[in-house]
Each structure stands twice: as structure tokens, then as C-alpha cells.
Design a protein around this nucleic acid. Structure first.
Lengths: 246, 246
DNA sequence: CAGTGGTCTAGACCACCTA
DNA sequence: AGGTGGTCTAGACCACTGC
């Protein structure tokens, strides 16, 4: 492996990727000690501080662990590190091995309710774009989503084809709105007549009801969405961690 | 603020705590630009590299954000950083402002099913302790829990009073089993006759069904639990983060 | 252009572990 | 005692931003 110090890619990053590859490929095995920081720095022809940055990031990412005075070691393959990934329906379904589909039932600019105005931190004259979609997995209806997005963040959104393109893709790529995190509430409910008919289930069938408020990096709210999942077709998975207050 | 370079507490850490205090106290306000790294380094009488470490950690913790070429800024008060805290029912209810209660419907040592044996990674002769409890919030029944715990991890558990003591407290304090993380699946279902009678709701009422597998630090499974929450009385909250596959 | 954060160096001393 | 990671320095050059 050659480090290219003319490359715009930082040296620490090139080294990090090289070490990560050696871990993933099995060249370094779980609980192996990797060479000392000094040796690695010499091997890559860089300073120890730079090498240390590569290793530190791999430690933070869970690939390595350090023991003071002993060395740096390869971690055991870790539990999936995603707590609960913030993904759109398309990505979620694709990952589960289904073919996603969408039918736009409604898309228009509307005046926000007071609740919406407060949740999305809207100014007086701001409107929102309301998008109601029925979503499919392998052509079977699975979920209804009512999404509300401030118009000023994506003025042309109303003309997008959201049956083909993922909403999150459009927000990220066209409007450069990088979604970062979300607060989500979930509860069990039952289908009323309307929901039941749209989803093709019996009235009174169990539904997983979700409210989600999505934020950009700087805690700017960007989307509020209400979701009804068919209880017989959807399981939500999440990893819980012991609370560590930083 | 004085930096003590004789202290065993590293300089970067002392600076980090001082800056954090200035943010929390409001001395630096959200979206304020803090002084440049060079100025701060001079102010604290340290090198820029050391100062940078303090700032980097505050960025990672969500207190600050950097903009290349512009400066370093204070974040808006962040969303609660717990993704989803791993807590028992008692702690959960207390935090929500309810008075928790419990009635043990069943507690005994049983042979594990093949599914349980696999999930809890049990050896041939291991048994499990099965605990069925009805849980109350303000004396109203809210949830039924079936918990399964390997007997060898807590041999005397069967004699504990789990109507008064929190199961997680007993595991952590008496058996020194420090719970670390859990994988949880959630879906919507409806109450059958048995569940409905026990929870005091109508048959066909919505229930939030949860399966949880809890682990110790070293990925040793310690508890499997099935939970049925009343859909009309319980909302699950979780924070989602953009999936960053490292 | 000056000011900012992003990266990098070639050393240094310390604390911890094993022997 | 020798090797390891933990911390720290005093510089340096670069890329991005705003004037």
C-alpha cells in the first residue's frame, strides 16, 4: 500500500482506509495486536501524530481498541452499530429485500396548522408542502405517509416525481439538505375505515403509528411526517444503549 | 479560568470542561462564534494542537460545530443525545411521571425452548427463569412482560421480590450483571382474549408488541423478554441518526 | 488580501504493562 | 528496562471564506 502525499485525500484518511481493509479482509484478525504506532508511522512514512489520528478514528468506529502499555488490538466483529438508522422508506425496503413502490395521493402547498408551525419553527408567512403517499413493498400496500416540509427549503419540490425518486434523495441531492437526525414516537393503533380501505386491510386491523420530526445538522427541523404501517407486515428494529450522559 | 499543567487531568480535558461550562452557562450562546483556535490556544497558554483536541471533542459531543474558513460556532441546544435509553419499566415510568407497580403472575425455572436456547446462547443443561409480570402505571395495568433469564447468571433470582424491586436493579446490584445494550423489535398487534382480560381492555384493542434481547458489555446475552403494551396508554420514543457506515 | 479551520511534522516526556 | 499508548509542543503549509 502506497500513501500518496500529493493526493487531496488526507494522509490520515488513506491510512485509515488501508488499516480498515486489513481488518475487514482478515489480514488482522480479532484480538490480534497490530504493530505499534511508531512502527506503523514508519511503515507508512508519516509522523506518529498523523498515524495516531487514523488509529483513533478506527477506535471510535469500533474496529480497534487500545490498551495502555500493551498495544492496539482488533475488535471482535461488533454488533450492528446503527442505533436506528435514519432512512427513507425506499432505502429501508431495499435493505429488507423488498421492491419499493409509491403512489402519490396528494401533493400541494398548504397553510400549516399551529402545531406544525411550532414543530417546524415556521415564520408567519411560511407555507408547507404536504405530500400524502401510499407505499408498496413488492406491490403490496404497506404504509401511508403524510409528510410536511417547509416550502422555502425546497420551493420546486411540488413538481418532483416522488413516485420514482426517494424524497430523501431529492432533499439531499437537489436541495442540499443533509438530514442528520430525527425524533420519533411510535404507538399501536387500529385502522379506521379510511386507512383500512387504502391499505387493503380490515377495519380494526393493527397499525403501527409513527410521528417523526427530522432535523438537519444544526437542529433545523426540515420534515414532519405521520406514518401508518400495517402491523401484520412491518416490524421496527432498534438497538438500545445504556444511557451515557456526556 | 486557570489551567493547571501539573494536574494529572490532561490540559485538553480541563479546557474542554471550561469551554463546555461557558456554553451551558450561556456565556457563549447558540450560533455565537467562539474565538479562533489560535486565540483560544494563546488564552489558555497551550499549543493549537492541544486546544484543537478540546474543541474536536466538543464538536463530537454536539456542543460546537465548525465551518471551514469561517470559524467555530455554538450549536443550538441539542436533542436529547440518548438514542433510546436501555431502561427497565420502573425507570421508564418514573421518568414519565407515573408511579410504577408490578404483580408477579408467574416465576419459575423452566426448560428453554430451542428458540430461547439459541437466542440466549445456552449450553445443554442450562435452564432459564421465566418471569411473567403485569405492570401498572398509577395503578392502571399497562403492560405484560414475559422475561427469560439464564438461571446460571442469577441462581437465587427466583426468590427475589420483583413486585417491589426493579429486575434490572437486582441484576446490576446483586448479580453485578451490567446491562449494556439491547436489540429490540416492535410491531403493532391486537389483544387476544387472554391479553385483553389481563390488561383490562377489549379484545381487538391495539397493543404494541416488543421483543428484546439484552446484552452485557461483551455481547453476552442476559435476558430475552416479550412485552405487550396497551396501545392507548404507551408511546415509544426513539431518536434516529443518519446511518454512517464506518 | 487576512483570517479561519484542516492537515502535518519531528520531536518530547509521561504512565502503564511485561518481563 | 524496554516497549506501548497518552499527552503535548512550536512550528508549517494548505483550503476555504469574506472583504
Amino acid at each position: 500500500m502506497r500513501i500518496n502525499d500529493q493526493s487531496p485525500v488526507p494522509i490520515y484518511f488513506q491510512i485509515k482506509e488501508d488499516l480498515k481493509q486489513k481488518i475487514i479482509s482478515g489480514h488482522y484478525k480479532p484480538n490480534d495486536r497490530i504493530p505499534s504506532e511508531e512502527d506503523l508511522a514508519e511503515h507508512y512514512g508519516t509522523s506518529r501524530m498523523t498515524l495516531r489520528r487514523s488509529v483513533t478514528e478506527l477506535v471510535e468506529d469500533g474496529y480497534l481498541y487500545r490498551v495502555h502499555g500493551k498495544g492496539t488490538f482488533v475488535s471482535k466483529p461488533r454488533i450492528e452499530r446503527s442505533y436506528a438508522p435514519l432512512t427513507g422508506f425506499m432505502q429501508d425496503m431495499t435493505k429488507r429485500g423488498f421492491i419499493p413502490g409509491a403512489k402519490v395521493l396528494e401533493i400541494k402547498e398548504v397553510q400549516p396548522s399551529p402545531k406544525l408551525r411550532s414543530l417546524l419553527e415556521l415564520e408567519k408567512n411560511n407555507t408547507v408542502i404536504k405530500i400524502v403517499r401510499l407505499r408498496y413493498a413488492n406491490e403490496e400496500p404497506i404504509v401511508i405517509q403524510n409528510a410536511f416540509i417547509p416550502t422555502f427549503l425546497c420551493p420546486e419540490l411540488i413538481h418532483e416525481n416522488l413516485e420514482v425518486n426517494s424524497l430523501y434523495d431529492v432533499l439531499e441531492n437537489k436541495y442540499k439538505l443533509e438530514l442528520f437526525c430525527a425524533k420519533q414516537k411510535m404507538e399501536a393503533t387500529v385502522a379506521n375505515k379510511n386507512l383500512a380501505e387504502t391499505l387493503g386491510v380490515k377495519k380494526g386491523s393493527p397499525l403501527l403509528y409513527v410521528e417523526r420530526l427530522t432535523f438537519l445538522k444544526n437542529n433545523i427541523p426540515v420534515e414532519y411526517v405521520e406514518i401508518w404501517y400495517r402491523g401484520d407486515r412491518y416490524v421496527f428494529e432498534v438497538n438500545l444503549f445504556k444511557h451515557w450522559d456526556k
